[in-house]
Design a protein around this nucleic acid. Structure first.
Lengths: 203, 203
DNA sequence: GTAGAATGTGAATACTTCTTCATGTTTGCA
DNA sequence: TGCAAACATGAAGAAGTATTCACATTCTAC
């Protein structure tokens, strides 16, 4: 199924994992289309023929990498907001966790946004799924009277947008901001501003 | 220089423009790496050799398309906030203008984010430049006492993130939201929430 | 109108990549 | 231990792409 044949032995699993790991790195450094199957195989230390034992083509492997990455990011951030007592705390904790994750695994952006070039529907599904889960959390908060009453779907995209672009700033544009304490400080500073209403009331 | 030889006659300019237009469309629909030079030339109605009269390779053409697009978007949004009397109004107007622009020219996302695959430094420069200009406007607003005192660089990325992801929602994920009035409504609704502080104060 | 510059052509060459498959090796298990 | 299934190989054929270049056409200035 899916163009993927899962390995049945430990030896096969090791090879499979090596192919996935090599592909992720190469998709990040060289990009999907510039990465050849021969390179992925070579980097993983196997012959090209071995690639075709597990994946029917490069697309299937990319799809696997993307879906797995989405799952890992969701798990990571969900765990990070577990302890939060209010939505206010949860948003801060989630954003900090997300930014720290992509700092540690910088291939996240390139791999995910490459979906736009590989297969637009993959990209659309990735974010629609993220948004849908986000909205569920926001709806609960709304039910508890914790957030103002606005369109939650748009709010979910707005918050994802902040995370992604501030994450871009910290991990890709201004790498000197990558320390844990700096990330915490920038996110807190930003949320302090947002929670004050951002704009100063003028008479 | 830049790998580009500008045409010297009107006839040449027409051919040059046709190549740029065809490339933009093809980069959007098929992606940079899947688009061949033969396709660009054919779509523009010229021979492959003609391509090499103006561009030394596909990269130079992409670079030209990206820089031009950035310029057009900046001009478009700058013009849209001209009439705003407060920063609050300017942010709303700018976001509405940006989203309507990418709705009308949906190749913007795919072309810009492709920079990540084509040449990361192009991507970095694109957004750093956007941010730097944004910060200038925000600094003025801060001087006028119009916004709360937080890190302006991070704020600029946060606001760009909101524009980009809400733009994604409206133009790519939920196309039924593309009407002018709907865009205005969603942006106003979101800003109403942000200006209230987003989170309801709990006792 | 004419010279010379600018523009336009596409077949041919050189290069790269995908995918298959005949054959060999390793693993799991009765 | 033996054997069937799983796993591994990489050369070779098929398919596709970038770039060149000798030659043709069009434009512009005088």
């Amino acid at each position: 199924m899916n163009g993927i044949t899962k390995p049945l032995t430990k030896r096969g699993q090791k090879t499979f994992d090596a192919l996935v790991r090599s592909a992720t790195t190469l998709f990040h450094t060289k990009g999907y289309h510039q990465t050849t199957i021969a390179e992925i195989a070579s980097d993983a230390g196997v012959g090209v023929g071995t690639f075709y034992i597990y994946f029917c083509d490069k697309y299937s492997l990319y799809r696997f990498v993307l879906l797995e990455l989405g799952h890992v990011i969701r798990t990571h951030t969900t765990k990070a907001i577990q302890a939060a007592k209010t939505r206010r705390e949860a948003e801060r904790a989630g954003m900090k966790a997300f930014i720290k994750y992509i700092r540690d695994y910088p291939y996240a952006y390139t791999v995910i946004w490459q979906a736009l070039q590989v297969d637009k529907s993959l990209f659309v599904n990735y974010y629609k799924d993220f948004s849908a889960r986000y909205v569920r959390g926001l709806r609960e908060a709304l039910g508890e009277g914790e957030i103002v009453d606005i369109d939650l779907e748009t709010l979910s995209y707005a918050l994802m947008g902040i995370s992604n672009f501030v994450g871009l700033q910290i991990t890709m544009f201004e790498p000197h901001l990558q320390k844990d304490e700096m990330i915490d400080h920038l996110v807190d500073n930003l949320f302090d501003g947002i929670e004050k209403g951002l704009f100063v009331k003028k008479v």
